[in-house]
């Protein structure tokens, strides 16, 4: 039973409220995950601390080559934001894939990360972008890679009864970099991904200098295609090298048979095509950018 519902004006106040209720209070942002828990009678928290009206929580800014995004930015805001579109286009694409208009108008990026679902659209792309979250607690602020924020299936290292994610930060993509987000699902709306892939690719002097390929749901958290990434470093970007790398992606994927997501065999057989498509799309973006390779 929810006994009380409070709005916090800033992180200080939110932390003080969480502390006062010592474990029985929990952060709520858009509520699109939490309120389903309420409907299922699964919510343990008695007090909810609403962080969506906190100062700076919706802010999106470009500073010193980094894009910083308030954890309270909604999927709709992210999908339509010009800075995100210019410097991390695929994050806007991923945000636009979430649920439906109604869900996107409420769902936040912070909630998407803390919910820690392996195939959460925005979180998968944020792992590809190498994003870091600022986590505020009673003893101060710490920074954690989104990639390292998973503690288990649906389990985050962030404890929403004690801590608040205030901000998400990553390097804005340059002219020699491209990104892509590809999602396979039963329908175009209100369907969880069968598979999703996020990629960022950097090309220097016509050779691949950096690449991050993230696949989900093929493990308990978004999974890097390490073997494919290693293979690509130093290679010329080409259809052949992308195809070879894409075939290697399954080495790092361990999908299970799933009623919602499809069989293991099916997903392992389509995964390489999605990785290949994402690599090609990232390369196309580099070609399109002015002054690109």
């Amino acid at each position: 039973m929810i006994q009380d519902y409070l709005f916090a004006n800033d992180t200080e106040e939110a932390l003080a409220q969480l502390y006062r209720y010592a474990g029985t209070a929990m952060v709520i942002a858009g509520g699109t995950d939490l309120m389903v828990n309420v409907a299922d009678l699964k919510l343990k928290a008695q007090v909810l601390i609403d962080v969506t009206r906190m100062e700076g929580f919706h802010k999106i800014a470009l500073k010193d080559g980094y894009l910083t995004i308030g954890a309270g930015v909604t999927m709709s805001e992210a999908a339509e934001n010009e800075l995100i579109y210019a410097y991390a286009r695929s994050l806007a694409v991923a945000a636009a894939c979430v649920g439906s208009v109604q869900i996107r108008n409420a769902a936040t990026l912070g909630g998407n990360i803390v919910k820690a679902q392996p195939a959460a659209d925005a979180a998968v792309m944020l792992v590809a972008l190498g994003a870091v979250i600022s986590v505020c607690g009673r003893s101060g602020k710490r920074e954690i890679l989104v990639e390292e924020s998973y503690a288990g299936l649906g389990q985050s290292v962030v404890d929403p009864t004690k801590e608040i994610v205030s901000e998400i930060k990553f390097k804005a993509l340059g002219n020699n970099q491209g990104c892509a987000y590809i999602r396979l699902a039963h329908r175009k709306a209100l369907a969880l991904p069968i598979l999703n892939v996020g990629v960022i690719l950097s090309v220097d002097e016509r050779k691949i200098s950096k690449v991050r390929i993230v696949m989900a749901p093929v493990d308990i958290k978004p999974q890097r295609a390490m073997a494919a990434e290693e293979y690509l470093i130093g290679k010329m970007p080409s259809r052949e090298s992308f195809r070879t790398a894409a075939a290697m992606a399954i080495k790092d994927a361990r999908p299970r048979d799933s009623f919602i997501h499809g069989s293991k065999e099916y997903r392992l057989s389509v995964l390489p095509s999605l990785v290949e498509k994402a690599l090609l799309e990232s390369m196309e973006e580099i070609y399109k950018k002015e002054g690109g390779v």
């Binding site: 709005f7 509520g31 309120m35 409907a39 909810l48 609403d50 709709s76 109604q102 869900i103 108008n105």
Partner: peptide
């Protein structure tokens, strides 16, 4: 101005 699912919005949020 934004469409939302009223089944998932705590009433207090419309303050």
């Amino acid at each position: 101005g934004k469409a939302v699912n009223s089944c998932l919005i705590p009433a207090l949020k419309v303050q």
